[in-house]
Design a binder for these strands. Structure first.
Length: 255
DNA sequence: ATGGTCGGGAACCGA
C-alpha cells in the first residue's frame, strides 16, 4: 500500500498536474495540503473520475486539506484537538487502507518572533498531544503532510539564508524531535540518512534551477506502521513541469 | 541587491 503527501498550492491551478501524477504514481492514499478552496468548490468529479474517494476540509482562499483514497475512507476528525477557537483548515484524520492516516498542514510561523510563530509552536504542542494519543492505540498510524519544519541542517540547501526562519528555529526543531523521542519514525530520513531529499523549492530567485531546496514534507510512522515500511520516495521530477506546485509528492510504501 | 514568484481572487495576503 502506497501512502503519499502532496502540497498542491491551490487545487484550482494544480488539477492537471495532480491528475497526471495520480495516473503515473498510482498511490492508494494521498493527503493534499493548501487546496486553497472551500469544500464545496473542490473539483470532486474530476478526482472521482480518476478513481479516488475524497474527504475535504476546505477554507476559502487559504490552507485546506483533503484525503484521496482508492478505497473509501472513514473520517475520524477534521480538526486538531486542543483549541476550539482555531478555525484554520489544517488537519483531517481518517481510517483507510488498514491505517489511521492523518493529513496535516503545519503553520509556517513567519515572521519570528510574532503571533504567527506563537501559533505555530502552540499548534505543534497540540499536535504532540494528539500524536501521543494515536501512538498509545498501538495501531499503524501515518502523520503525513507539509510540516513546515526542516529538522536539521541536512534538510535545507542554504542554512545561512534561513537562519532567522520559523522552519529552522530551535523551538520548532525541538518539537519535531519530540516525535522521534516518542517512537515515531521519519520514514524518508530513516531510509536515506545522508541525502538531502528536498521536497520544496521556492518560486523565487531561481531556487529550483539552483537546487536551493528544503525537506519539509514528511511522513511520520507509528511503531506498528514502521514495522511494515518497505520503501519511500520523493517525486522530484514533478517540480520541473509547467505550472508546478512549489512542493513535490513524498510517499511511503507499507507491506 | 532586505531582492524574487506564485495562487486566490479581485486589493493585497500568505508563502
Amino acid at each position: 500500500m502506497k501512502f503519499a503527501t502532496f502540497n498542491v498550492n491551490g487545487i484550482g491551478a494544480r488539477l492537471p498536474r495532480l491528475l497526471e501524477w495520480l495516473a503515473e504514481a498510482r498511490p492508494d492514499v494521498v493527503g493534499l495540503q493548501e487546496i486553497k478552496t472551500q469544500t464545496e468548490s473542490f473539483p470532486l468529479a474530476a478526482i472521482e473520475a480518476a478513481g479516488y474517494h475524497v474527504l475535504v476540509h476546505g477554507q476559502k482562499g487559504f490552507n485546506g486539506v483533503a484525503i484521496l483514497s482508492r478505497e473509501p475512507a472513514q473520517e475520524i476528525h477534521r480538526q486538531l484537538p486542543g483549541d476550539e477557537e482555531d478555525v484554520q483548515s489544517r488537519w483531517i484524520e481518517a481510517q483507510v487502507a488498514g491505517v489511521h492516516f492523518v493529513c496535516l498542514y503545519l503553520p509556517n510561523g513567519n515572521p519570528v518572533p510574532g503571533p504567527k510563530f506563537d501559533y505555530k509552536l502552540a499548534w505543534m504542542d497540540r499536535m504532540l498531544a494528539r500524536a501521543a494519543e494515536l501512538a498509545a492505540s498501538e495501531q499503524p498510524v501515518i502523520l503525513a503532510g507539509d510540516w513546515n519544519v526542516c529538522p536539521t541542517d541536512l534538510d535545507l540547501a542554504r542554512p545561512d539564508m534561513m537562519a532567522g526562519d520559523a522552519l529552522v528555529q530551535p523551538e520548532t526543531r525541538a518539537r519535531f524531535r519530540a516525535l522521534a523521542a516518542a517512537g515515531w519514525t521519519d520514514a524518508i530520513r530513516a531510509q536515506r540518512p545522508h541525502a538531502p531529499c528536498y521536497s520544496y523549492w521556492d518560486y523565487q530567485a531561481g531556487a529550483w534551477a539552483k537546487n536551493w531546496g528544503l525537506r519539509i514534507d514528511h511522513l511520520m510512522l507509528s511503531p506498528a506502521a514502521a514495522d511494515r515500511l518497505r520503501d519511500t520516495g520523493i517525486d522530484r521530477e514533478v517540480r520541473g513541469a509547467e505550472r508546478a506546485s512549489d512542493h513535490v509528492p513524498a510517499w511511503v510504501e507499507l507491506a
